[in-house]
């Protein structure tokens, strides 16, 4: 085959067989399971017409739900960026008993079904629960308030920052820290000026992943949230309520708005990951 021909082709020739079959199956399956159903959502939301779509999407109850979902997701991700960096640091740098166990436990929110986490957190933070009975007399009411939403979102977002920062800390060259120390920097200065800049892209990536996951989260939130319209009602719950009222178009419109937000976040996360890799020199 001439080089001109292979340059024009979108597929580089290979002696490995099976491209047609595996690619065909991949595209058909991807289209049937993911792309067509997502297109149905867009078509259904589009059926409303622009003015009505805007009216549904900006209704006060919807706006209150966005504020709660996005606000609580942001605060939860912010808490997790601090504690995530801390946990990653401790796991990489220090030795302590049961370290492997703690490391494995970090992935629990990925493995524990959300409904199970939801009822467990609701019970823990309720008036008679182990944590609720301690913090409620202090005036901190968590269960059935927006604060409860945040607690659930801290839980499901916990692994992200730890898992993005951990490998970066592991690969960090200790010689740079020694150099900083020999130049007279104290430990805090070294952290602030040497370590933090290296782990920042990974930490922000983890923050974005946790935030993206949290805005769509449903199962772990609804049991602890209280679910009062305008007050403690998250966006996914509002979609379900609209479906239960047979308001399919309203559900589709808010679903489409959330989907658009997710796509924007996906783009941001891809950009952050590229930034991370550049910083790592990989």
């Amino acid at each position: 085959m001439s080089s001109a021909a292979s340059q024009r082709s979108w597929l580089t020739p290979s002696v490995v067989p099976g491209f047609g079959m595996t690619m065909g199956f991949t595209l058909v399956y991807l289209s049937l399971i993911v792309l067509l159903p997502l297109a149905a959502l867009v078509v259904r939301a589009g059926g409303l017409g622009w003015d009505q779509f805007v009216a549904v999407v900006t209704a006060p109850r919807a706006v209150a739900a966005y504020r709660l979902s996005f606000g609580a997701a942001f605060i939860a991700a912010a808490i997790n960026i601090v504690f995530g960096v801390l946990v990653a640091w401790v796991l990489v740098r220090y030795r302590f008993p049961f370290k492997r166990l703690v490391d494995g436990l970090v992935d629990l929110p990925f493995a524990l079904p959300t409904a199970v986490a939801g009822i467990a957190l609701a019970t823990l933070f309720s008036k008679n629960g182990w944590i609720g009975s301690v913090v409620e007399p202090l005036g901190l009411k968590v269960a059935f308030t927006p604060l409860g939403v945040m607690v659930a979102l801290v839980f499901i977002g916990l692994p992200f920052v730890v898992r993005t920062v951990q490998p970066v800390l592991q690969d960090l060259d200790k010689e740079v820290e020694e150099a900083a120390a020999s130049l007279g920097a104290d430990r805090f200065q070294t952290f602030r000026h040497v370590i933090l800049p290296s782990i920042l892209p990974a930490a922000v990536t983890g923050f974005a992943l946790a935030f993206a996951r949290a805005i769509g989260e449903y199962g772990s939130v609804i049991f602890i949230a209280g679910n009062l319209p305008m007050k403690s009602e998250i966006v996914p719950l509002l979609i379900i309520i609209k479906l239960e009222q047979f308001d399919y178009r309203g559900a589709a419109a808010i679903g489409a708005a959330m989907l658009a937000a997710s796509f924007v976040l996906l783009l941001v996360i891809n950009m952050l990951q590229r930034w991370s890799r550049q910083r790592m020199g990989g």
Binding site: L35, A40, T114, I215, I239, S262
Partner: peptide, 28 residues
């Protein structure tokens, strides 16, 4: 196992369900 154009788009599309809220996954 193959080199072709549009690979990174395909990988992004495969990962797409992870970015979609579970409720929207049912809604569609």
């Amino acid at each position: 196992k193959f080199e072709f154009r549009g690979k990174s788009v395909l990988i992004t599309l495969i990962d797409l369900p992870f970015s979609v809220s579970p409720v929207i996954s049912g809604l569609i």
